[in-house]
Amino acid sequence: MRLLLLGGTEFVGRAIAEEALARGWQVTAFNRGRHDPPPGVAALRGDRSAAGGLAALEGDGTGEWDVVVDTWTGAPSAVRDAARLLAGRAGHYVYISSRSVYAYPAPAGLDEDGPLVEASPDAGAVEYAEAKRGGELAAEAAFGERALLARAGLILGPYENVGRLPWWLTRIARGGPVLAPGPRELPLQYIDVRDLADWVLDAAGRGLGGPYNLVGPPGQATFGELLEACVAVTGADAELRWTDPEAVLAAGVEPWTELPVWLPPGELYDTMYGGDVSRALAAGLRCRPVAETVAATWEWLRQLGGRAPHRPDRPPVGLAPEREATVLGTA
């Protein structure tokens, strides 16, 4: 199989590249060249947000591919231009989208037929949800039933450049009392980036098209199991101090940003952690235990000296030590 990755050097793209290489696929990555692709990946350079930025993909001698995987998050018009260019030279187009394309609030149990945000494939810079939905429309306009829309939820695992699980691991590795927002039994819904990569390549190889909620089943792990796995893998002398969500919120601590991954029960929690994923499970999605995700992420962090990369277009996450101490009463 011949794979063209639009992106392919960080997080999701890198995991897909490594999985494709492990399968013996021929992999080409098209990107701006800010990061090197994994060894064994051919590189094409270009900035798709600039005029003439797709030149490296043009021309009869450039190549043809069985599968294109596009991880783009910006202006939908960039997806439109790439998909149009490749429609006659690629068999399948996978767009890594997001469950954010559903109109908010998305009730628990919502499947792929739920209401969507309004968006345009011709738009320039727009908000994240509109950008992802516009990208979906652009992929479908060029590839029709050959377009696979992978609506990912929370993605964790090695190479994470948003900082959510890396922050918890580095915080717990410091040891001492740790603010653990409750309830401990709070069910999570996420996907390991390697499981995402495995499913995407399988599905594209089988010719699947249309939208799929690509995330594990609700409750595949609890928040307590996630943090306890962090304690176990780091071997730290850390004490998880479980705190009622009402007390955390009353202290002014921001869910999701100051305490990554965590959302208190309510409307946003249902939207993020209650998606129906029966379609993806029926199409072969397999999800590894949370302990494996945590262990692999910790090993990757240790290889980097404990300092994870961070996307410049995303704000930093995590609770400042002095804020945590104040909430815990240990200041």
Rank of each mutant, 00 (worst) to 15 (best):
G13F: 06
L6A: 13
G53P: 13
R323S: 01
V27Y: 11
L188C: 07
D70A: 03
H35F: 15
A250P: 01
A119M: 11
S98K: 10
A320S: 09
G209L: 10
A204H: 00
A296H: 13
L186V: 12
V69Y: 13
T330K: 07
V253M: 08
L165Y: 05
G176A: 03
G163Q: 09
E160K: 05
F143Y: 13
L110D: 01
L21S: 06
Q303S: 13
G209Y: 09
G91C: 12
I96Q: 08
A150V: 15
T71M: 10
R164H: 13
Y212C: 01
L156I: 14
E322R: 12
P255W: 12
A236C: 03
P312Q: 01
R89W: 03
P289M: 03
A331D: 13
Y212I: 03
A232S: 13
R286Q: 14
L249S: 02
A296K: 00
A139R: 12
E58F: 11
P264D: 04
T271S: 03
V215C: 07
R194L: 12
K132C: 09
P38M: 11
D313Y: 15
L319M: 05
R151A: 05
R84S: 13
G40D: 02
L54M: 05
R89Q: 06
L328G: 10
L319C: 08
A204F: 10
Y128M: 03
A173D: 07
G63T: 02
E130M: 14
L154F: 15
A325C: 09
A141K: 01
G275L: 14
F30S: 08
R288L: 07
A180G: 07
P265Y: 06
R279W: 06
A56G: 08
P321H: 00
V94Q: 04
R323K: 11
R184M: 03
F11P: 08
L268P: 00
G163I: 04
S49M: 05
G91P: 00
G205C: 06
P255C: 13
G91V: 02
F30C: 10
G284S: 03
G235I: 13
E18N: 14
L227Y: 00
P312E: 11
L285K: 06
G7N: 05
A15S: 15
R174D: 07
S77W: 06
P309Q: 09
P115H: 13
G8Q: 00
R241T: 11
D270K: 00
L328A: 11
R323H: 00
R323P: 01
H35M: 11
G274F: 06
P289T: 02
D70S: 00
E254S: 11
R32L: 09
G63I: 04
W242Q: 01
G329Q: 02
L116P: 04
G157E: 11
T271N: 01
V231W: 04
W65Q: 01
A55P: 10
G219V: 01
G275M: 15
D237I: 04
L57I: 02
A147G: 05
E322D: 15
V27L: 10
G33T: 14
